Simulated assay, not measured.
Amino acid sequence: MPVDSTTFRSVLGQWPSGVCVVTTVGPHGAHGMTASSFSSVSLDPPLVSVCLGNHLPSRTLLESAGKFALSFLGKDQAHIGRRFAGQHPGVTDRFAGLAWTITPNGCPVLSDAVAWLDCTVAHAYPGGDHTIFVGRVTEAATPRVIAPLLFHSRTWGQVADPLPTAIHLTVEVAAGDPLAQVLRQGGARVRHDDDHTEFVVTADGSGLPSAEWVAAAKLAGCVVGYVADAFDPGREQAVLDVLDALTALGCDEVGLAESATAPASPLQVRRVLQDAKARVRPAALRVRLAGGHSLALVNALVAMKSGVTHFDTVAPGSGSPGLPLGDLLHLSRQLEVSGPIDPAQAGDLRDLAQIRE
């Protein structure tokens, strides 16, 4: 017995997918539509597929042109997806007001897409009320590093990252404090140990070392480059540019430091970390969050949900501002995220002063 269309559509809606704009050209110029029915087919040769409804003008135009392009949308481009899905009926020219690049095949792609593919039609297969177009990829690019736009259950959304299984800590400890040895034995890194070198760069790039200096420092151990005041909403793009520079220098770890005097909002922390996580690979991304304000642990939770596993904290008596070690370990315990100190051995980690006694 065949499945009714309502049930079938509802089931398919539970499968999340990325979103792309399919473009081609016809007698009257460019034409485009939003599609989520995209799939990779082959690596060698590079082939992809897209399914278009037989009732759509795009389907006829694409078949006649024998070519098409795909622009993958980022998390901030849901309005473009809606426009090319026909959800803005007042828009007569879907291409107007957006920046486009013309591919070698002559198809338009979004200049600020997450990525784009330029294709020639290799095959066209009947697929019920759709046509399955298989395209041979002739050009490809990734213009912008940003989290993707998702479509799920007829709703536009973003990637929701799971909590990490474990976190790694660097701890600021007062000089001569016996707690340092306890932390090392537990697997934490103690800041200012000789096995790593740190430097701080401002959002305008001031303090950026040379590639030769970083290469020499790497011979002695781990190199960590931090961006100061990294969650200032007025300098978001500048911060991301500095992250690119630190990654290009070959830093083992790249850090984002929150201002101790201007606490960041969780939304801004999320926005920066979503993009930063993808930019710094293969380097590890770490955060140095401020303590002493009501949103400190919220920001720590947001960082974990954004894929951060490396945190800088401060131990009691260190004299440094920052996220208290005990608070972060208490949070990780409640979230069932393992850390370098076993709560069963350390006792009440909200008061780490007990460890020194």
Rank of each mutant, 00 (worst) to 15 (best):
L73R: 03
G225D: 08
G250Q: 06
E253W: 07
L179Q: 04
T261I: 11
C119N: 11
R286W: 14
G135C: 05
P263F: 10
G186R: 09
Q185K: 05
V22C: 07
Q14M: 11
A160H: 13
A211Q: 13
A260V: 14
H88N: 13
V173A: 08
L328D: 11
L62A: 12
P263S: 06
K277L: 10
P263L: 06
E336S: 09
V239Q: 02
H168T: 15
C251F: 07
Q185S: 07
V25H: 06
P27M: 01
D244L: 03
H152A: 07
L295R: 14
V19H: 03
Q345I: 12
V314M: 05
P46Y: 06
G187N: 06
S49N: 12
K75W: 09
L98Q: 13
M1P: 08
E236D: 11
S153F: 06
T309M: 02
D44K: 15
M304K: 04
D4I: 04
L208Y: 03
D312K: 08
V25C: 05
D229Q: 06
S10D: 13
V3F: 12
L52D: 05
L70D: 00
T170Y: 05
Q77T: 08
H152W: 14
S320H: 10
A69W: 03
L297E: 09
Q274G: 12
G127F: 10
L43I: 15
T202Q: 04
V287C: 02
H310Y: 11
H28T: 09
F231E: 05
S40F: 04
G317N: 08
V22R: 04
L52E: 06
T23V: 05
I355L: 15
W100A: 09
A257Q: 14
L285M: 12
P324D: 15
G317E: 02
L163N: 13
D275C: 07
V287S: 00
P27A: 07
V287I: 07
A260S: 11
S320P: 00
S10V: 10
P148R: 01
A300V: 08
V182G: 01
G291W: 11
Q354A: 15
P263V: 05
L117P: 14
S17T: 14
L297H: 09
D351L: 06
V214L: 01
V280K: 01
G186W: 12
R288H: 13
A353T: 15
P178M: 08
Q181C: 01
E198I: 03
G250K: 09
S58T: 12
P209C: 07
L331T: 00
T261S: 12
L289S: 01
L352K: 03
S42N: 10
A238F: 02
T155A: 09
H28D: 13
L285K: 00
E357H: 08
A30T: 03
A122P: 01
R270N: 14
V280A: 02
S5D: 10
C20E: 01
P343G: 03
Q237W: 09
L163R: 13
C51A: 11
V48C: 11
T103R: 14
W15R: 02
M1A: 12
R333M: 13
R189N: 02
G186T: 10
L289N: 00
N105V: 14
V182A: 03
G90N: 11
T247A: 08
